[in-house]
Structure formats: structure tokens, C-alpha cells
């Protein structure tokens, strides 16, 4: 191996394990000297390269990482919280929807259910206990009034008719009470003019401001009741 190539090899890598280079080094004292010089130079370079490392760097690095993963965890926690909140929100909405949305799709079914539900509270033998004034006071919230009580009015109560405030009138009928509902216009329930089941029948009338439903048993002439109502009701708007 010539001197130039030897020097190039040593310069490029003083710690070379190349056999030819090492053999040449063994054979020639001049080359050995050169190799030692460069090895010394390399040690000096290494010492020079080892600039002092800031003492607190290690701690800073650990701290920075801890902060960063803490932030990530906080972010994760926020996401989890947000997800939990969304689930709760949807649950709430669903519950709300189920509670207040129509279980019945038309006025008739609902009116019948309503009557059956409250049937036990009213007896046909009860005396009329509601005055025209108090009836009309209640009717006022539907912008309407009656000129007479149209019969023996047992009860007149506001009630929830499919989550809408409506007026429930109970009259003495021939055999069983006659129920009249005054309800605001509702988009969710389809209007059913006539409806019935095995015991009860019902008829609905649509006015501009409200619907009026009459429910009674088979013996009751609902047409008469409708006529009667029609004659006596006035709407203020």
C-alpha cells in the first residue's frame, strides 16, 4: 500500500480495521508514527467536540415531556368529557321526545284514551258544579266563550292534551258523561272528524283557533252536542 493511500485511509478513519491498512502500518515505522499522530489528533477532536452540555438539560427534557403528555391527557379528558356530554344530551333529547311526543297519531285515538283515563273521576250522577262565568274564564285562554253552559256541566278543567294545554269539559249525558275537549291547533295529531271504539264515539269540529271534540257513548247524539256547541261558542279573534 502506497503512502498516499495509507494516509487517505487513516485520515478518513483512524480507527479503521482494514487489514491492508493495519498490515502496512505494522511494516513501516513512518506509517506507524503517522497513524499515532492522527489518533492523537482524533482524541483532541473528540475533546474539542465535547462542548459542555447544560447541566439542567436532562431535567428540562423530562419536564417538557411530562408537561406535554399532561396536556395530551387533559386534551383526552376534554374529549371524553365532551363525548359523555354528547351522550347525555342525546339521551336527554330522546327522553324528552319520548315523553312529550305524540304516542297517538290522531285526535280521536287520543281523545278516547283521555276519556278512559279519567272516566273513574266522573260520575254521570254528579250535579253540575261549574258556572258559565268560570267556564268562560277558562275559555278565555282559547280566545273563545260560550253563551250558555250547554247542559249540566260537571267539570271544566285544564289538562294536558298531548302536552298541549287544553280544556276538558265533562257534561252529564244520557247514560254516561259526555266529554268535550277544546284543544289548540296541533300539527302532530291528524284531525279525525269521526272516531269510535266499542263503547264510545267521538266527533271533531275544526274552528280557526281550536278544535272541539265531543266524546260520548252510543246513545248520545253527538250531532246534537255539536250543534249545541256551534250555536253557543263565540271566538273573539
Amino acid at each position: 500500500m502506497d503512502d498516499l493511500q495509507f494516509r487517505r485511509s487513516i485520515y478518513a478513519d483512524p480507527k479503521t480495521t482494514d487489514k491492508d491498512v493495519r498490515a502496512a502500518q505494522q511494516a513501516d515505522p513512518g506509517k506507524r508514527k503517522f497513524a499515532q499522530d492522527i489518533e492523537k489528533l482524533d482524541q483532541d477532536i473528540l475533546d474539542a467536540l465535547k462542548v459542555p452540555v447544560p447541566e439542567d438539560l436532562y431535567d428540562k427534557l423530562i419536564l417538557r415531556q411530562t408537561m406535554s403528555s399532561h396536556q395530551q391527557q387533559k386534551k383526552k379528558a376534554r374529549i371524553q368529557l365532551a363525548m359523555a356530554a354528547s351522550v347525555a344530551f342525546v339521551l336527554g333529547l330522546t327522553l324528552n321526545f319520548m315523553q312529550f311526543s305524540s304516542a297517538y297519531t290522531n285526535l280521536g285515538d287520543y281523545a278516547l284514551a283521555h276519556v278512559y283515563h279519567e272516566a273513574e273521576y266522573f260520575s254521570n250522577q254528579e250535579a253540575a258544579s261549574v258556572s258559565l262565568a268560570s267556564l268562560n274564564q277558562k275559555m278565555a285562554s282559547f280566545d273563545g266563550s260560550f253563551s250558555t253552559t250547554m247542559g249540566e256541566l260537571i267539570a271544566a278543567e285544564f289538562c294536558r292534551f298531548d302536552s298541549m294545554k287544553s280544556l276538558h269539559l265533562v257534561f252529564q249525558g244520557l247514560n254516561s258523561p259526555v266529554n268535550v275537549f277544546i284543544i289548540p291547533k296541533n300539527k302532530d295529531l291528524t284531525f279525525s272528524a269521526d272516531f269510535s271504539d266499542s263503547k264510545l264515539r267521538g266527533k271533531s269540529m275544526a274552528f280557526d283557533d281550536a278544535d272541539i271534540i265531543v266524546v260520548g257513548d252510543k246513545y248520545e247524539s253527538l250531532e246534537k252536542w255539536q250543534e249545541n256547541i256551534n250555536r253557543n261558542v263565540q271566538w273573539s279573534t
Partner: peptide, 12 residues
């Protein structure tokens, strides 16, 4: 390897 050679050569 050439660059390493030159680097050390210059320093030397």
C-alpha cells in the same frame, strides 16, 4: 470517506 479525509487533513 473523502469528506472525512479532507476534514482531518485540513485540521492537521
Amino acid at each position: 470517506m473523502t469528506r472525512l479525509f479532507r476534514a482531518r487533513n485540513q485540521l492537521k
